[in-house]
Design a protein around this nucleic acid. Sequence first.
RNA 1: CGGGGCGUAGCGCAGUCUGGUAGCGCACCUGGUUUGGGACCAGGGAGUCGGAGGUUCAAAUCCUCUCGCCCCGACCA
Length: 573
Amino acid sequence: MRYSQFLIPTLREDPAEAEVMSHRLMLRAGMIRKLAAGIYSTLPLGERVIKKTAQIVREEMNRAGALEVTLPFVQPAELWHESGRWNVYGKELLRLKDRNERDFCLGPTHEEVITDLVKGVISSYKQLPVNLYQIHIKFRDEIRPRFGVMRAREFIMKDAYSFDVDEKGAEESYRKMYDAYCRIFERLGLKFRAVEADSGPIGGSFSHEFMVLADTGEDVIVACTDCDYAANMEKAEIQAPQAAPVKKDDFNELQRVETPQMKTIEEVTGFLNVDASSLIKTLVFASAHDPVVALVRGDHEINEIKLKNLLACDHLELADEELIERITHAPRGFAGPVGLKDVEIIADLGLQGRINFVTGGNEKDIHLINVNINRDFTVSRFADIRCAQEGDSCPRCGEKLTTTRGIEVGHIFKLGTKYSEAMQATYLDAGGSSKPMVMGCYGIGIGRTAAAAIEQSHDEHGIIFPEPIAPFSVIIVLVNPTDEKQKQIAEHLYNDLLAQDIEVLLDDRDERPGSKFNDADLVGIPLRVTVGKFAVKENMVDLKWRKTGEVKQVAVDSVTEAIAENLRKTNFT
RNA sequence: CGGGGCGUAGCGCAGUCUGGUAGCGCACCUGGUUUGGGACCAGGGAGUCGGAGGUUCAAAUCCUCUCGCCCCGACCA
């Protein structure tokens, strides 16, 4: 491709709208442009990156025996009523009506469509297992799209769905996908980790997330320093601390203290000169049913996902001011468990074995000290409802846990028979009896993966693409296109590389060399060849590696071979 | 949806407080010089100041309403 014939509208300055690096760089490199919040156009350069990412995913899915299909983006509401999700999915599901006022939605995921498809075409155990996938558009009307294509509303996803005769088969399908995902992210050259995850509203019994490690990631990964346990913070279990039995003799007398305007943990601990671990945070939650009060230590964070799973409810959110006052009869910041009536109180395991707590007094500007469980209030149940933190004990081996941040690029689920039962996707087994297929589903965000690669690999000059998804392998910078001799050499080299099937971009623009070098750095092409006056005078060109900055002088005659050799090497490492 | 911020040329911004000719840098077009890390000279095009209403002799600027976008929280690939 000739740069002059291509379209790479690079930006010299950072667009004001972009905060995270991958978003900025994708805009600056002319890969994407925004149309509306969370809705992006992909320009030619971005398209090449997306296509390459998708192709690697496709190859590995095919290798794992999955079959590519294309499923409709616009889906009839009836399917969603069948699965029961029409009323559950919430506002994220963009609903629309056709000219006949029939309800439709834009597909945020395709379990319904695929299950409906499969139940129509598969009826015998002889046709199973089967795994169907597509690489296609999804639309989720996200509450808050952000970070460019990292969390877009419209995005490209690879979604695969497996159907098996039984649980054992489903586990095998799951394992195949797990392995395929590992291969995919390895081939993409990403530092990643597969972690245990909460299965969320898609449902199912078991799931893993594939996280690309990056400081700007939205997810927190909890990993063991010793064994291979790793989980999403949402899910990460904590080994229950051994609670020493409390001695009632050590209970001090309950007291009220005035704590004017002190609402936060820091303010209260600072004022009373106590450790945050002896404070009880009292959190009121509104759920679909009754409000719930959750208690965690001042030095711990509540894990709403764990609480939600414990309560087995669909909706759970922190109470608003009004509900807090109704439950505690005090403004926000002074809630405590003592004296609460008619509400379930769930306490984190971390409260066990401890005495003489500080809590809110359920009265403005009042806290209580020397509060003790079972003397001053009772707990409905104890459970693990807090977030793991650095230094907690691994639930598997007991060693220390650490935390890192990650970007969720893939997610695999064992669905079981949730959809096949709801939608009657059954088959006849060898004995002639009808059974529900056992399903799994497997997603990869293609654009997000490309963005994550950029997030993980860039410097102050721009993107440093991993070779497998770089839009071009090589860029030839023709320093002075008005110099006929330079031009000849560059053109010759360009044709040689094309003949070798090497993806090459020839920067033949009549621009200053500095602009060309900066653009080459910005768009992150792995290898740069500079054809300038040395090429004419001494028959030498510079090869420069984007990643390391290493420069090598190579004779014009041998540069094609040197490049081909280098690309072969990187493809195998 | 709650909290914070921003809408002025393709991009980045100034001008708004204190109403009076719509500006700067980059990009773009023409000509010339230049060509190994974002050149220079000369000339040029481009904005209903997000939109609607109001106040005023006069509104980018003041008032009211509205739309859009970004950031922080509840969602997820």
